[in-house]
Simulated scan of single mutants.
Amino acid sequence: MSRDRVDERLETLLARAHQQLGIVVYDGLMGSGGPPELRDPDQMLGSLLAAAHRRTGEAVAGRLARRHGKEHGERVVADGVARAENLLMRRLAVVRLKYRQRAMDCAREHWPLNVVTVIEKAVDAVQELITGLEEEDLVETACDRLVQVSRSMGRVLALPGSATQPTPALGGYDYLEEVEEYLSTCSARLVAQARRSKQLLDSELIPHFHAPELSCLGMLELAQDLSDDLDLAHREALSLSRAVAAVKEASTDFRGADLRSADLAGADLEGIRWDASTVWPPEWKERIWKASLAAANGHGELIVGVEPHGSTVAVDL
C-alpha cells in the first residue's frame, strides 16, 4: 500500500474519531439535562477534554485542507446523505426521544405534500406531449395539462429552502441542527430543479401554444429538455423522501434502546416502536406495556398507543 494511501486512511480515521467524540460528549450532556454546573475539579477536566477535542479537530481539518486544497475549517463531507442517515440512528436514544417531536415537526414542514407523486405526474404529462409531437397528433388539452404541471411545480417551490447554518455547538453535532441541515439540503436541491423546470415551462414551452404558427419541432426539443429536467427533479424528490423517512425512523424506532435516564413526563410517546430489549424507566414500565399493542409484522415489536389497555400485550417476545 502506498504512503499516500496510508495517509489518506489515517486522516479518514482521525476525522471519524473526532466526529464521534463530539457526538458522544454533546449527546451525553443533552441526554442528562444539559451541561451541569461544574465544580473546580470538574472544570479542570472539562477544560482539558474540550481543548483536546478542539485541537484534534483543528489538526484534522488542517491536514485535509492541505491535501484537498480547501480552506482551513471547512467541513469535509464525502457523502452527506449517507452520513446523515447513519448518524441519526447512532445518536443516543434519550436524545432522539427528547427531541423527537421537534424532529417530526421539521420533517412535516419539508414534506407538506407527496412531491414524488407531483413530479411523477408532471413527467407523465410531458411524456404524453412528446409522444403527441412525435406522431404529429397534438391533443387539444395539451396546453391545459402543461399549465396544471406549472401550478404543481409552484407548490414544490414553496418547500422550505436551505436554512442559514447556525453556529456549531460543541463541535457542530447538535441533533436538531443535523436534522434541519439534512432535510434543508435535500429540499434546496429539489426546489432548484423544480424552479428550472417551471421556468422552461412558463417562458418557453407554454408560449409556443399561443404563437401565430405552431412549431412542433421546436416544441419537441423543448419538451425533451423539460423531460430531462424533470428526471433530475424526480431523483431529488426521491432523495427528500428518503431523508424524511430517515428522520421519522430515528424519531420512532427505539427497539433495544436504553431509556432508563429519559424524562418521559409530558413526552409524546404515541407511535414509538419498541421490543423486549428496550429498557424503560422503572416507574414507566407498566404504563408503557398497558399503552402498547403488538405490531402487525409478528416480529415481537410493540407500538405505543394513546390509551392504556386493560390486559397484557398479546405478543410472543
Rank of each mutant, 00 (worst) to 15 (best):
R9T: 02
E11S: 03
E11M: 10
T12N: 02
L14E: 03
G22R: 02
L29P: 08
M30Y: 01
G31I: 05
S32Q: 15
S32N: 15
L38K: 03
D40R: 09
M44R: 15
A50E: 15
A50C: 07
A52P: 00
A65E: 11
A65F: 09
H68Y: 12
H68N: 08
K70R: 15
E74H: 10
R75K: 11
V76R: 13
V76P: 00
V81K: 04
R83M: 07
A84C: 04
L87V: 00
R90P: 00
L92A: 07
V94S: 07
V95Q: 04
K98M: 07
M104E: 11
H110W: 03
H110C: 04
H110D: 02
P112N: 06
V115P: 01
V116C: 04
T117Q: 13
T117S: 11
V118C: 05
E120S: 14
K121A: 13
I130G: 07
T131A: 15
E135R: 14
E135N: 15
D137R: 11
V139E: 14
V139L: 09
C143N: 15
Q148F: 01
R151D: 12
S152T: 06
G154M: 01
P160L: 01
Q165M: 12
P166M: 09
P166Q: 07
P166W: 03
T167L: 13
E178C: 09
V179D: 10
Y182W: 07
L183E: 04
S187F: 02
A188T: 07
A192V: 08
R195L: 05
L201K: 04
D202V: 07
E204F: 10
I206W: 03
P207C: 11
A211K: 12
S215D: 15
L217W: 05
L220W: 11
L222M: 12
Q224T: 11
D228H: 14
D229P: 00
D229R: 13
L232Q: 14
A233W: 05
L238S: 03
A243E: 06
A246F: 06
K248L: 14
A257K: 03
A262S: 12
D263G: 11
L264H: 04
G266I: 05
D268W: 10
G271H: 06
I272E: 02
R273T: 12
A276C: 10
A276V: 12
V279W: 04
W289S: 13
T312M: 08
